[in-house]
């Protein structure tokens, strides 16, 4: 079926089986490789994107539901050359090790900051439940607080 949506600000149309997880449309049809496959079962969070601003695990989101939606991936998180506050904070705190899970964490964090501009440690514990095997959680927590500061200073 033909599915039309906006992704990272641009209109896009794909012809694909409607049940195809949006993850594979994004990665293999649109060649946006920042959204990662980790488990395909909505368990690890590596494939987290935004659908109309909400954090969604794209491996468990059928492409047909994307019709008419606004999709954002890690590639569209930044505004042009300027990195998103979450990305800036991730660099300042030198969070990534292997880096594979990080786009998913950053997307989840960006969604959190829209709802909770000053997240508490408890908010972070409750909302950010992706998996990082390098276990960079300690720096991530610092980076999430720092991202909130940057974002609040900008706005």
């Amino acid at each position: 079926m033909k599915i039309s949506f906006h992704i990272n600000g641009g209109a896009q149309s794909v012809a694909v089986d409607g049940n195809t997880p949006l993850l594979w449309v994004i990665r293999d049809m649109l060649d946006l490789k920042g959204t990662k496959f980790g488990c395909g079962k909505a368990a690890c969070g590596a494939c987290t994107i935004h659908v109309d601003g909400m954090a969604v695990r794209s491996c468990s989101y059928p492409a047909k539901f994307a019709e008419g939606k606004n999709i954002t991936t890690i590639e569209g998180l930044s505004a042009g050359e300027e990195l998103h506050p979450v990305q800036q904070a991730w660099i300042e705190e030198a969070v990534p090790q292997c880096g594979y899970c990080q786009p998913g964490f950053m997307m989840a964090t960006a969604a959190l900051l829209e709802k909770a501009p000053n997240p508490t440690d408890q908010d972070i514990d409750d909302n950010i439940v992706n998996i990082c095997r390098c276990a960079t959680y300690y720096r991530m927590r610092k980076a999430i607080h720092r991202a909130a500061e940057i974002k609040n200073a900008n706005s």
Partner: peptide, 17 residues
């Protein structure tokens, strides 16, 4: 707020995941 049911659960079962 950032971990909605809809983060993983959609309006029908997903046989892939």
């Amino acid at each position: 707020p950032a971990l909605r049911c809809g983060t993983c659960h959609q309006r029908e079962n997903n046989d892939y995941s």
